[in-house]
Amino acid sequence: MLRLILWSLLLTPWALQAEPLRLSLDPPGAGSQKASYESSHAPKMMRKYWVHGQAENLSAQLLTADGVQHPLVPVQESGASYLSFKTGFMDGPLHGVNQLYAQSRRVEGPDLRVETAQWYNVNHSCGWGHPFRAEPEGLAPKASGIDGLELLVEHLWDGNLHKSTEAGDQLQITALLKGKPVAGVELAVTTGSGWSKGLVSDEQGRAQVQLIGDYFPGDWSRFKARHQSSLLITARYQSLQAGTFENQPYQSINYQTSLPWNFTPERSGYQKYETGALLGFGGFLASGLGVFFWRFKRRRW
């Protein structure tokens, strides 16, 4: 037990600073630490995601929108790993949200480190229609039950399968361990600008955080309403469960999970409803008076 405590003390600062296993559209070394952006309006025939971080004994799986699990084989290229899968043109069952998982396992000191990198792929084209309005369950992310720590985040997209996360939104996060809600998971929500907020999941595995606005171009003429700020949700949980992995004994399991996402500036920051309603009323009044005086001028007494 003493050895476990010493190892934990020694490794904790390192573990907190190390880059978590995560998925990205960019290969490692491409520069940006931010989660790159994937459109929820344009379809693609093939999806490809690069694995960042220390990947050992890598396994992967895809939970498609129709609820079917598909094992994926990681591919090595130029010293890095990537995962890919087809999202064929007009492929009905895949029209929805695909949940991708890459998992790495290794024994490190007394710990078995089980790192999971998640990705939500909103596979949608407006040309395919918006049939999910009547089926809210088809819009919600599903629990995959993977042997690890999993994050489910709600309301990241709207009923039309368009990404709709804005600054100011409340993120509802549920942490699951092997498919079941788990309390005491340490969560961190970090934006591209470096802002970070720590959370701990409750008895239902839930935690909630309000996203801050982190896009301030300084000059109105440079403001872009569709600017994508990046977001990375990470989770950590320690389970005091001993065992062996590939003939190596361990005293506890250290679960870590990451999920990248993007968000746009808060709509109410640049849309003025009172001014808009006044302008509409102004148009109504001016037209009404115009018609009244026109008719008054042409009246037959």
Partner: peptide, 23 residues
């Protein structure tokens, strides 16, 4: 019904849209 102030084109288009609606 919002007036979009995020850029000049959006301001022009949404403003025009609201005036047209009233008319």
């Amino acid at each position: 019904l919002g007036l979009d102030l995020s850029s000049i084109p959006k301001l022009v288009l949404t403003g025009l849209g609201l005036l047209v609606t009233g008319a």
